[in-house]
Design a protein around this nucleic acid. Structure first.
Lengths: 155, 155
DNA sequence: ATATCATGAAACATATGAAGTTACATGAAA
DNA sequence: TTTCATGTAACTTCATATGTTTCATGATAT
């Protein structure tokens, strides 16, 4: 299965935005992500609706953080993306008449549901602030280079 | 993401086969699964290679169980299918130069890897015999109807 | 022998959804 | 009023599970 990388992408964007005082345009973010500005706007739409980020039009416009990074977890961001599928596997039929398939579904569903709950719980343990802090640690370890988005991505 | 239902499908097939003494044809299995015989052969190929089932050509041919159901787990079957993706999500880039993305990847990869290990562990706890036993319990609860594949799926 | 049955495998079609792209309307700032 | 940036719709592209057709291979029954 082709993997959904929206969560990965949106986190990347958020952490870059956190390094900027001023709004960052979709175009600048897209360049850093090697993608298209519309893709950025698309994955940011849900976060804007939830108030995690805000967008401004016109000169000096762009995206900026609108929340306390220490209060928002990966799970919150996941929900803001619209709860995309976590698992690549699923049951063949949801409400089968066949008793065999009911047994199979029961066993698999339990495992699937538990795995999803497990993953969501993990997401809930990680705040955006923790991610950002980890980034700053890596930055220092590498020699404390610039926080600038373009500089980071130039390497 | 569209979900992969091969594991679900192959388990359904195996449990039906377990109810038959004689080989079951791909066509009969396909009819029960409302799919195509070639699809059956395709998902069974890996299991045959691993020796969990065997196939015979010609009159009276078809598929039959070739293993001890109490010794084979869902995890074994999963591997026989070729280790398909378990998670629908993944990192945007595997080996990013960007330190921000490295932080994101590190956090997500840990959660993803743990969730996969969790799910595989669950699979490893369930034997085919346990699934079959669960089916028989459901059968008795419903009044102990026929084990016949066609009868089961006629309902 | 040969007709029939069943698998094995290749080739192709279909469907779904993420990702990428284009185009244009909306609205804010210089 | 020109420029910039987002908002949104529509479209293309791509990957992959699933479905289908076709024919070769081999086993069994008559």
């Amino acid at each position: 299965m082709k993997r959904d990388s929206r969560l990965s992408g949106v986190l990347h964007v958020l952490l870059h935005m956190a390094e900027h005082r001023h709004p960052v345009t979709s175009e600048a973010l897209a360049k850093a992500m090697t993608t298209n500005p519309v893709v950025i706007r698309r994955i940011m739409a849900g976060l804007r609706d939830q108030g995690y980020v805000q967008s401004e039009k016109g000169h000096g416009g762009g995206w900026s953080i609108a929340c306390d990074l220490s209060k928002v977890t990966l799970r919150d961001i996941y929900h803001a993306l619209g709860d995309p599928s976590l698992l690549a596997m699923g049951n063949r039929t949801e409400a089968p008449g066949c008793l065999v398939e009911q047994s199979v579904n029961a066993a698999l569903s339990k495992a699937f549901d538990d795995a999803e709950a497990f993953l969501l719980a993990r997401f809930g343990e990680v705040t955006l602030a923790a991610l950002s802090a980890d980034f700053h640690r890596r930055m220092l370890a590498r020699g404390g280079a610039s926080h600038d988005l373009e500089t980071i991505h130039a390497s």
